[in-house]
């Protein structure tokens, strides 16, 4: 490859210079903003009080082990719930898209389920499932808040995720279905082999976004009395009359969410790159 011309080298140098300058501007403006925010907060009249109540290092250190142990429960709910949500959501979505009069009752049930559980606030589902179900005193109904909390979360989130999947399925161009059927594939086969793989690719970023939302909503199982991170923090607050444990629990949830958010970004970026045929725009 011949070496670039003098002109091209000067263009590259100028672009590098611009890139450096905008990085510098971004850096400086971020630092200035952080400094101003810091000064405003620390010079507020109530700051010493707030610092003692919300940011006490000794209370934080004391409460951390219990809260971290509680977070383990949240993680379990997250993993089990997340997997179940994927399965149930996909099932509901597929049922909602099957055609043919024979499936009408199923379709109606699926639609009603989605309408219902997308409408009810998660916390109310938690109360209904967590306290209502055991109150029936049926044989074999579990009473553990872990199980009941997971069920409630799966019920709510599957309704959302089903709609994400459905949007993905419908975004696959009808010509793809036509091509699959023209090869003699059944509805089921064309769904599984042709439509769903393309649909999944489209909706992965949206699904990851829902997963990040799920990550913090697992903290709501504390209302059922499960000793998770939030509940542990609550107990610690009750013992110390200091709100620092809440901040600790919040930070732990953020730490949990950050890697997921980055993964979601990376996946979306990859999908974007794959779609773009190069070019600036």
């Amino acid at each position: 490859m011949p070496p670039p011309s003098e002109l091209e080298l000067s263009r590259r140098a100028w672009r590098r210079h611009r890139a450096r300058r905008s990085t510098l501007v971004a850096l400086v403006s971020t630092l200035v903003f952080a400094l101003v925010a810091y000064l405003v907060v620390t010079h507020a009249p109530g700051w010493p009080r707030v610092r003692a109540t919300f940011f006490s290092p000794s209370v934080a250190a004391e409460s951390l082990p219990d809260i971290a142990a509680g977070l383990w429960l949240n993680l379990q709910v997250l993993v089990v719930g997340g997997l179940l949500v994927l399965v149930v959501g996909l099932l509901v979505a597929v049922v909602r898209t099957v055609r043919g009069p024979a499936f009408t009752p199923l379709r109606i049930v699926a639609t009603a389920y989605v309408d219902l559980f997308r409408g009810i606030p998660l916390i109310i589902v938690l109360y209904l499932v967590g306290f209502g179900l055991p109150a029936l005193r049926l044989e074999g109904v579990p009473t553990s808040p872990f199980v009941l909390g997971t069920v409630a979360i799966v019920l709510t989130y599957s309704a959302y995720v089903a709609e994400v999947f459905r949007a993905g399925i419908e975004s696959v161009h009808p010509s793809q279905r036509a091509a699959a059927r023209s090869l003699g594939l059944t509805h089921r086969q064309s769904m599984r082999i042709v439509v769903l793989p393309q649909a999944l690719r489209t909706v992965t970023p949206a699904l990851l976004n829902d997963f990040v939302a799920l990550q913090k909503d697992v903290g709501l199982i504390s209302v059922l009395g499960a000793v998770d991170a939030v509940r542990s923090a609550q107990i610690a607050v009750g013992q110390t009359f200091n709100f620092t444990p809440y901040v600790v629990a919040g930070l732990l949830f953020v730490l949990l969410a950050v890697p997921c958010a980055r993964v979601a970004d990376a996946v979306s970026a990859r999908a974007r790159r794959r779609q773009q045929s190069g070019g600036l725009l």
């Binding site: 670039p4 011309s5 002109l7 091209e8 070019g279 600036l280 725009l281």
Partner: peptide
């Protein structure tokens, strides 16, 4: 695409 600046040229004008 180079002429309409939808691509940046790698050399030349």
């Amino acid at each position: 695409r180079c002429a309409s600046l939808l691509e940046t040229v790698d050399d030349g004008q």
